[in-house]
């Protein structure tokens, strides 16, 4: 059972995940694997209806979709385990290097203790299996701190009033 949170609130998921060889429905919002995206790139990018999302596994790099991000509405980044932190840097690059403004969704082993790090790295959506994490997020408890020693995603945090430290931030 997966619960989707967007910008901190429980949300219905309008997206359909398509994998393997099945045909891509013309009018639906679909999330496709990188393999499928590469195989049907032209068709996927020129659909008339239905939004496009791409799911990247931990080994996939965002360079593979970088040129097409203008036509992609959602990128799902997988956390195969709690301890694999590659997706943090990918989210950061999507936002900062590529200016991607669509949904960045964390999937896989999403745990409460990393939720704040995910948000600070650019994720705005979380697909959560882990029930204690779902419960905590329902209580709006993200196990994070309110003070930060480094700037993260622009706009999410304020410069700290603490003098003489351009790198310090405070939660809004």
């Amino acid at each position: 059972m997966t619960t989707l949170f967007i910008d901190g609130a429980v949300a219905e998921d309008p997206w359909v995940s398509i994998d393997g060889e099945q045909p891509v429905p013309e009018a639906e919002d679909v999330i496709v694997s990188l393999a499928l995206f590469e195989a049907q790139r032209h068709a996927l990018l020129t659909r008339n209806e239905g939004r496009l999302g791409v799911y990247l596994e931990a080994d996939d790099q965002i360079d593979a979709i970088a040129d097409d991000l203008g036509k992609i509405d959602l990128v799902a980044l997988d956390f195969p385990s709690f301890a694999d932190g590659r997706a943090f840097s990918k989210a950061r690059l999507l936002r900062d290097r590529h200016g991607f403004a669509g949904e960045i969704r964390a999937t896989g082993d999403v745990r409460i203790d990393q939720v704040q790090h995910m948000r600070r790295s650019g994720f705005n959506a979380l697909a959560v299996h882990h029930q204690p994490t779902v419960d905590s997020l329902m209580e709006i408890k993200d196990a994070g701190l309110n003070l930060f020693y480094q700037p993260a995603i622009e706009g999410a945090e304020a410069r700290s009033s603490s003098g003489g430290r351009s790198w310090a931030r405070r939660a809004l």
Binding site: F82, A83, D84, G85, F88, S89, R92, Q114, Q116, H117, M118, R120, S121, L145, F148, Y149, Q150, A152, R165, W167, A168
Partner: peptide, 16 residues
């Protein structure tokens, strides 16, 4: 000290 601060709970680099 500046590096200590910057690296403390750096959200991107806790699961290297």
């Amino acid at each position: 000290e500046i590096l200590r601060q910057w690296s403390t709970i750096h959200p991107e680099f806790l699961f290297l």
